[in-house]
Design a protein around this nucleic acid. Structure first.
Length: 121
DNA sequence: ACATTGACTCGCG
DNA sequence: GCGCGAGCCAATG
């Protein structure tokens, strides 16, 4: 039999792990996740992995945004609203359709005294 | 096999 | 801030 098991590629696995590693109350861009997974410039792949994953995968997909802080979904769409709701639920402020990456971006180092991150995980 | 699409990003003007 | 083009590449038509 030739049951194609659509085995999860290792690339997808590392991307999932990178997403899982985003601390609660923080966000990261598609590009950042890709880079962290050892796949620079593969932002689009991150988007694909997220789409294929769906909600069953239980990944914190709502913590993944575009590089400029905007949500990737069409404003007012169902998914957009859901993402906004989840972010708000964990303390991430969404002004209009974007998040302030200086405050909530997944950056451990630059908090040398400004903005004071919501919570150090 | 070719063209388009897309949960993206970056540089340039 | 905005539009354009290029890079990216698997999935879809």
């Amino acid at each position: 039999m030739k049951s194609a098991q659509t085995a999860l590629k290792p690339e997808h696995q590392t991307i999932r792990k990178a997403i899982l590693a985003i601390p609660r109350g923080h966000v990261a861009s598609y590009g950042e996740i890709a880079a962290r997974a050892g796949l620079p410039r593969r932002a689009r792949l991150v988007g694909r992995v997220l789409r294929e994953a769906g909600d069953e995968a239980k990944l914190p997909w709502h913590r993944v945004l575009r590089a400029d802080g905007r949500l990737a979904f069409v404003p007012r769409s169902r998914d957009f609203l859901e993402q906004k709701r989840r972010l708000k639920a964990e303390g991430v402020l969404v002004a209009g359709n974007r998040v302030d990456l200086r405050r909530f971006g997944w950056q451990r180092d630059l908090d040398a005294g400004l903005w004071a991150p919501p919570e150090a995980d």
